[in-house]
Amino acid sequence: MIRKRSRIERQLIIFGSAFGTTAELVRGTWRSGSGRKWMIPLIIFLCLNGLLLTLAAGVEVLAPFVYSIF
């Protein structure tokens, strides 16, 4: 039986792990050898947007706004 977590608990877990994902994305782009290192600032900016909204989505009343924005 899988324990159901509250929305805020789930969003906090996602928020916590998102830094690792962003770091992996940046590291991957840096090492990829595709010559696209210049994309890193844009990637960080977009991921930060996503991170903030992931956190905000934990509040149920705001969730429809937040989910739809991102």
Binding site: I2, R5, E9, R10, Q11, I13, I14, F15, G16, S17, A18, G20, T21, L25, C47, G50, T54
Partner: peptide, 10 residues
């Protein structure tokens, strides 16, 4: 993009 977190949270 946040699959690791989604799996961990679910």
């Amino acid at each position: 993009l946040w699959i690791r977190g989604i799996i961990a949270s679910q």
